[in-house]
Amino acid sequence: MRQVTGALAFVLKASLVLAVLVMFAAIVIQVVMRYVFLAAPPWSEELAVLMFSWATLGGLALGVREGFHVALTLLPEALPPAPRAALGRAIALFVAVLSGYLFWSGLRFMDMAGGSFSAAMEYPTEILNVMAPIAGALCCVFALEHALLPEREA
């Protein structure tokens, strides 16, 4: 399981770095084209926002794996080690179940709202909408890893 999640996390991180760089490049091109050539490309903003969506949803999943999401830690911090670890597993399990629901919800959404297009680039919105089930699946796998193999945290 470790190897699988490790490989998934590697691919995820690579895709996130790429998304941020494309987002950055699209906006720089937009400014330069508008200011220097008086002609902003119609696709730049939409491409940047598409990349931002992945930076956000993929980032949600990376946060589950790396545990960087913000939480109120007052109660867990007050607990002795054993109950604290148990609470951590329970929360990870909750996140896994919820992410499974998000995965299913995302598949339904793709199915029901298919066949439409973005405004500028006219890409099929499935390209955007598929991010929800992918993020759900990744969150679920990473949360299960925490719930079943919690020793990595220590």
Binding site: V20, M23, F24, I27, E45, A48, V49, F52, S53, A55, T56, L57, Y101, L102, W104, S105, G106, R108, F109, M110, M112, A113, L128, N129, M131, A132, P133, A135, G136
Partner: peptide
């Protein structure tokens, strides 16, 4: 309809002004 959850998550990530945060 359960698809609401995914739909709104996508919608919440589609804002140009928010790009200022990562950048």
């Amino acid at each position: 309809e359960p698809a609401f959850l995914a739909q709104q998550l996508i919608a919440g990530s589609q804002s140009f002004s928010l790009l200022a945060i990562p950048l």
